[in-house]
């Protein structure tokens, strides 16, 4: 779930065209880049796909934080492969967004100057090696919850990007759980790291699904357009129900004293995350917001001469080729 709080745009289009468009979506016919679409649909999708892409890019940072300290050669390789996949996901998603008439550079600038967001989860730090396990297990686990249904989303390029991404995400989640297993079965110090990681990342993972449906004002339109496939609370419940037995198997304690099985609803009752904290993180007050944006801005600014140099060279080659013809 790398897209949160996606604001929907009201459409001022011809009601007849809108009705036709809705009928197409209801019939599960994919919308393709050349098809007519309401302006609100286009803008909402740009916001959602863009936020998702930015999350993949910023998401490299908390994991990159441990690549140089990975404890074995094999763990280093797995983590490198995972971060490489994430950069690749960013690339597919920017390409999907570009079919809606916005360039990757424009989206990047909106990320860098704070006009566009990325998932709140990446504003939390990775402090011990078990965090890398917990990110795979919980964060990728939460992302999969949302992305599996999004494979059926109405916009063709987004749906196809999601199908490719989901294949890789399930490998990411498994490697995360595998790290957690090693840690939970390891030395006392390793068990402590595993529990510490779960304590810090549990509620931020629940926040990934966005605020409660009652407060989520944009859900209805986005669900009608099949840009959003399930409500936030449905997905959060599903995530809790899936994760609790996994934590039990690891011998770790989920930091929620209200957590208990509810026979009537066939799911767990659990405590909500602190939504004040969530809104603070969105406003830029999370533990790592400043560091993350500074790192991305620095990479972009320091890289300007590289991008300019490679462009200039490509231009010279093109000119030489034209002159030779």
């Amino acid at each position: 779930m790398y897209a949160q709080m996606i604001k929907s745009e009201a459409s001022k289009d011809d009601p007849e065209k809108l009705a036709e468009f809705q009928a197409k979506i209801d019939a599960d016919i994919k919308v393709e880049p050349r098809d007519w679409m309401p302006e609100g649909y286009r803008k909402t999708l740009i916001r959602q796909i863009g936020q998702h892409a930015h999350s993949e890019i910023v998401g490299q940072l908390p994991e990159g934080n441990w690549i140089t300290r990975a404890p074995t050669l094999e763990r280093k390789m797995i983590l490198l492969a995972k971060v490489q996949d994430e950069a690749g996901h960013g690339l597919y998603l920017y390409a999907a967004a570009e079919t809606l008439g916005v360039s990757r550079d424009e989206l990047t600038e909106m990320l860098l100057d704070g006009r566009m967001k990325y998932s709140s989860i990446f504003n939390y730090p990775t402090l011990n090696w078990a965090d890398i396990g917990a990110v795979g297990w919980l964060v990728d686990g939460a992302a999969i919850m949302n992305q599996v249904p999004l494979q059926r989303t109405s916009y063709g390029p987004y749906s196809r990007a999601m199908i490719r991404i989901c294949k890789e995400e399930s490998f990411h989640q498994r490697q995360g759980y595998d790290i957690m297993m090693k840690m939970a079965q390891g030395t006392e110090a390793q068990k402590k790291m595993a529990q510490d990681a779960l304590n810090r990342l549990w509620y931020p993972s629940l926040m990934m699904f966005g605020p409660s449906d009652a407060e989520s004002v944009h859900s209805t339109q986005n669900m009608a357009w099949k840009i959003k496939m399930n409500t936030n609370d449905e997905l959060r419940q599903k995530f809790v129900d899936q994760t609790v037995p996994q934590a039990e198997y690891l011998g770790l304690t989920i930091p929620d004293e209200n957590l208990k099985w509810n026979e009537d609803k066939g799911g767990y009752d659990y405590s909500d995350p602190d939504w004040t904290e969530f809104f603070n993180v969105l406003k830029g007050n999370g533990p790592c917001n400043t560091d993350r944006l500074e790192a991305r801005n620095k990479a972009w600014d320091d890289g300007a001469w590289v991008r300019d140099g490679l462009m200039a060279h490509a231009e010279k080659k093109r000119a030489a080729k034209t002159a030779a013809e």
Binding site: I57, Q60, L61, E63, G64, I67, T68, K76, L80, V83, Q84, A87, G88, G90, L91, Y94, R104, A295, K298, A299, W300, D302, G303, A304, V306, R307
Partner: peptide
């Protein structure tokens, strides 16, 4: 690997 997430352009990160 120290470059991870800090390259000049996404293709270079990959």
């Amino acid at each position: 690997s120290e470059w991870c997430g800090h390259a000049p352009v996404l293709e270079e990160d990959i």
